[in-house]
Design a protein around this nucleic acid. Sequence first.
DNA 1: AAGACGTGGGA
DNA 2: TTCCCAAGTCT
Length: 307
Amino acid sequence: MADWFAGTARDLPWRDADCSPWGILVSEVMLQQTPVVRVLPVWREWLERWPSPAHLAADPSGAAVRHWGRLGYPRRALRLHAAATAMVADHGGAVPSTYDELLSLPGVGTYTAAAVAAFAFGRRETVVDTNIRRVHARVFGGSALPAPALTAAEMKRATELLPADDALSVQWNAAVMELGAVVCTARSPLCDACPILDACSWVAAGRPAPDYVPKGQSWAGTDRQVRGAIVAVLRDAEMPVPRSILLESPVDLSMGVPAASGHALRPAALTTLHGLQAPAEQLERALAGLLADGLAEDAEGGIRLPG
DNA sequence: AAGACGTGGGA
DNA sequence: TTCCCAAGTCT
């Protein structure tokens, strides 16, 4: 595994020896449910713009959301901003190095806390993400997929598998994760390229199909879709957008938003939002949820990203 | 402890 | 075209 990782691992910027703990933390949060290829350009822009937690904390949270672009789950940007603020307030502006301190930061759960402690600080932690779970399920469990939810038994197994040496444990975590990401994939695993093919109990069992059907997330017609459309409008808006234009009036955008209205909007996002034809009740609920998450509303009912 | 929470590319 | 799903977290 060590040789395989050393020889074939992807050359990702957050794996560079000189990448800061902050750079690694940002990458881990961006990579939550988002593919590497889409994270890459946004990560670079973030690190250039905000080279430390203090730099991000000095800007309004709305800036974090704007520069999050279309990575998805924009609340992650809000939480990263909150985490930066917490690091300035409680850790002298530095990324904390222990699992418990990391876990206490907004948006940092068990996976991310372990990953940052391991990859940024060289600590021996049991890192368990979807890739590692799948590799373990196949190699040691003989199943095509891990259980729907992380189990205590899985954590126990992962901990028992972890090399005792700190440095080796870090490399082990990275290697198993990489294997799951590029070879032992969910869809069509590249078993021919697997360095531990002979040790895989799933392959030995004839690669049996999954014993359950993962339930997919619905999308069309959901609040999430509406929230996404609203944030897309706000992300590109230079000024607060009146509630009326955002979700009430069936604005005719054929000629663009009237300059006299004073709202520098890009019609495309607004058209998409209105094109959803969502019930007024749902629009209100989606907006309320976004405001609760941190969107701002001025005295005149203008909706905008904070800052 | 299920379900909410975005997005876009590949199969 | 539709469905799947990618380094999860929070409630």
